[in-house]
Design a binder for these strands. Structure first.
Length: 495
RNA sequence: GCCAAGGUGGCAGAGUCUGGCCUUACGCGGUUGCCUGCAGAGCAACUAUACGCCGGUUCGAAUCCGGCCCUUGGCUCCA
């Protein structure tokens, strides 16, 4: 069973074959740090993370690089607000800290490296020089532009035709360009004032009227890197001239990724990325959620509110390559699904530990269900990362566990253990759900106290004092301890 | 205008590439029964024959072909 992925480059699902059979070189276009990350970013992250996890599960050594763009007119505009920092670097640093915290909160696997533009200016200048020497780029007024007419394949990713394209970039740039679709590799002088003005929020006061961004020396004078060039320079620096997988949001296909291909392939003469995977966008009221539209829910707010497991389940309930819409009802539904999984997990783990559990020759129903789940799950993930079906497979296993525990008078120890392992491996390792989270940490004293209260409650129940028993349960519930009575006695979960 | 993705039951959302073995996948919501001192969790069943519209191909189409309508995204910073 081989992995097949939808490649934007061909528009088709293709068998996945990395250059090296053991490694996968993954580059993910990360954020520009001019604002807080929102649920739209979170959704893409979770899918990229799950793809990473599945590749690792298949046995590949995943070399994952994810850039952070910390040079941008929008960041400079934030400097002008005067509250977040006095320089482009300072503002960026604050958002980067938050970004990394958000990623941890979402239980994302760490990338090998998170390269930043400010740390790679020499590599960027080298690459631009190469392109100028090759005749693919030209200087104009101290800026350097890529000449799109020198790259025959321009438009192959987004199916754009040069003569249909509208001019890129701010007005001031256009006069300097040979062709309307040429794009800046290097921008002369300081920050583009008109671009900064565009990014300012109208309803804010500006402490600094004329903020400036950082500039660097270059063969063309003082200046700043263009938007697209950093991804080419950094992916070549940290990975290779040819990537196996390049991922990003659908909104980056054009012009960002198209331009990355042009400048990279022109410079190296090699294919830039073999597979392009694009995550579709997250919508809010039939509009994409975005910082610039102001219609976003920050990750920082959403994680504590909904919980990381419910959020991941929510995002994974739709394909990475289809759009998804924000709605509290939908997130609530995902929370219910997650609860169902977690319930079955605990039930399987607890039942396996009960004295009535043993391995018998008969009653193989659960083991069969586990095998089915693993097979269905793998088939779903191998079919372009169909996470919704993968979740469905685990939910089927949940049903099987529940039916088994409800129906059997002797529990299948091995089947229950295998169910637990499967939840851990597929739900935990691959989908990034945290089954053990509630029991982790130093809850031992809390556990003992809860058990003490439950013992008292059991005694009251046996004595028929249901009012006192229920009062204890209510009190525990209020403290965030959920109680469930089962045939084998009460169980609880610390909220 | 050009390019791309999509329109599936009350909601959400797979399936479309590789026509039938597809089934209101999985789940949420609703109803009923079982279990329970109660609650929760769970189990069983039900929720009138859904696939944007119109044609076509086919023994057979959600799935293929043609046309049309609508939505979203990109062509300006963007995950």
């Amino acid at each position: 069973m081989t992995l097949r992925v939808l490649n934007t480059l061909s528009g088709e699902k293709e068998p996945f074959e990395p250059q090296d059979p053991d490694d996968v070189l993954v580059y993910y276009c990360g954020l520009t740090v001019s604002d807080f990350a929102h649920l739209g970013h979170a959704r893409t992250w979770v899918h990229v993370d799950t793809i990473h996890r599945w590749l690792a599960h298949l046995g590949y050594d995943v070399r994952h690089v994810e850039n952070i763009t910390d040079v941008n007119e929008k960041i400079v505009a934030r400097v002008g607000e005067g509250e977040l920092g006095d320089s482009e670097r300072e503002v960026a640093a604050g958002f980067i800290d938050q970004l990394l915290a958000d990623m941890r909160a979402l239980n994302l696997k760490r990338a090998e490296v998170y390269p930043r533009v400010t740390e790679h200016v020499p590599e960027i200048i080298d690459l631009v020089e190469t392109l100028v020497e090759q005749g693919h780029a030209y200087e104009s007024n101290g800026s350097v532009y890529f000449d799109v007419t020198t790259f025959d394949d321009y438009g192959k990713l987004s199916n754009q035709r040069l003569d249909e394209l509208e001019a890129q970039g701010p007005d001031a740039e256009r006069a300097e360009k040979r062709n309307p679709a040429d794009f800046a590799l290097w921008k002369a002088g300081g920050v583009d004032r008109s671009a900064v003005a565009d990014h300012r929020h109208d309803d804010r006061e500006y402490a600094v009227d004329d903020p400036t961004g950082e500039t660097w020396d270059s063969p063309w004078g003082e200046g700043r890197p263009g938007w697209h060039i950093e991804c080419s320079a950094m992916s070549m620096t940290h990975l290779d001239s040819t990537l196996d997988i390049h991922m990003g949001g659908r909104d980056l296909v054009f012009p960002h990724h198209e331009n990355e291909i042009a400048q990279s392939e022109a410079a190296t003469g090699e294919q830039f990325a073999r597979y392009w995977l694009h995550a579709d966008l997250f919508e809010m009221d039939e509009e994409k959620m975005s910082s610039s539209l102001g219609n976003f829910v920050p990750v920082e707010e959403a994680v504590p509110r909904f919980g990381v497991n419910a959020l991941r389940t929510f995002f994974l309930s739709a394909s990475y390559n289809s759009t998804q819409t924000y709605s509290e009802a939908a997130i609530h539904e995902a929370e219910e699904r997650w609860d169902r999984l977690e319930n079955a997990y605990r039930r399987a783990a607890e039942t396996a530990d009960s004295p009535a559990a043993r391995t018998t020759a008969e009653a193989r129903d659960l083991r069969t269900a586990v095998d089915d789940t693993r097979e269905t799950f793998a088939a779903a993930m191998n079919d372009d990362f169909n996470t919704r079906e993968a979740l469905a497979a685990l939910l089927d296993l949940s049903s099987a566990v529940n039916s088994h525990v409800d129906a059997a008078d002797r529990y299948d120890y091995r089947g229950l253990r295998r169910a637990v392992e499967t939840f851990d491996e597929l739900g935990g390792e691959v989908l990034g759900l945290d089954f053990a989270g509630d029991e982790a940490g130093d809850a031992s004293l809390a556990d003992e106290l809860v058990e003490l209260v439950l013992d008292v409650r059991e005694a009251e129940r046996e004595a028929g004092n249901y009012e006192r028993a229920d009062a204890l349960r209510d009190d525990l519930t209020e403290l965030g301890v959920e109680i469930q009575d089962t045939d084998d006695g009460p169980t609880y979960r610390l909220g």
